[in-house]
């Protein structure tokens, strides 16, 4: 139980994939113009990371070391295709909105990184929890960026109008540069806070 808590704290804060490891930036920049897309992307990533880590960890004792990367990529791509099919069948609108990004979950460095760094060396249930924790950390950062971008760029949250009609949308927030600014500012803030934490701990 204590271990679960530690893993979650690592994923959400101490070792957050985006803010700390600077992994998965491409998708964090691409889909964060709408809260809804970010949430679906995040859920997809949680699913894929958790189950890939579980599978990799389950077969780690039988996997020949020199082909482990191939095996990992195969497992990850199978789960990504699964998510893609699921979205196409049951949420076609979201599938169109996310476009190629669902398929690109496979190139998300977070999954590969965690499979290689964590799942290879830990038992299945812990690897599974780590996948959920890392995916959640990623999702939270995405949602934070999307919150600001959608609010300022469209005046809406999850498609519901929050700011009145007099609000002039900042179109820069919807465009890619908006994502860069937001991500930079967010990582800056998180690092400053973390530094303070460490100084206090000392």
């Amino acid at each position: 139980m204590k271990q679960t808590k530690t893993i979650f704290l690592e994923g959400l804060w101490g070792n957050n994939p985006i803010a700390r490891q600077i992994l998965g930036i491409c998708s964090a920049l691409a889909v964060t113009n709408l809260m809804k897309n970010s949430l679906v992307m995040g859920l997809g990533l949680i699913f894929v990371t958790a189950f890939s880590e579980l599978t990799v960890s389950l077969i780690r004792q039988w996997t020949p070391k020199h082909i482990r990367m191939m095996v990992q990529v195969l497992i990850i791509s199978a789960y990504v295709i699964l998510v893609d099919i699921f979205l196409k069948a049951y949420f076609p609108d979201i599938s169109t909105a996310l476009g190629p990004y669902v398929g690109l979950i496979i190139t998300n460095c977070i999954i590969m990184g965690r499979c290689e760094a964590f799942a290879q060396a830990n038992p299945p249930h812990i690897a599974f929890i780590d996948g959920i924790a890392m995916g959640t950390g990623y999702t939270l950062v995405l949602l934070t960026i999307a919150f600001v971008r959608e609010l300022l760029g469209f005046g809406t949250l999850f498609g519901i109008r929050i700011l009145g009609d007099s609000w002039v949308s900042w179109s820069i927030m919807i465009m890619p540069p908006g994502a860069f600014f937001m991500l930079g500012i967010l990582i800056w803030i998180l690092h400053t806070v973390k530094k303070k934490d460490q100084e206090v701990a000392k």
Binding site: P64, I67, V71, A78, I81, L82, I85
Partner: peptide, 26 residues
């Protein structure tokens, strides 16, 4: 584990399982 035949066999087996599962879902 480091024998080629084992590696190839392992890869083939994993591929069959994964692709089979995806084909069913598809």
């Amino acid at each position: 584990h480091s024998r080629y035949s084992y590696s190839i066999g392992f890869m083939v087996l994993i591929t069959i399982i994964m692709v089979g599962a995806l084909a069913l879902i598809n």
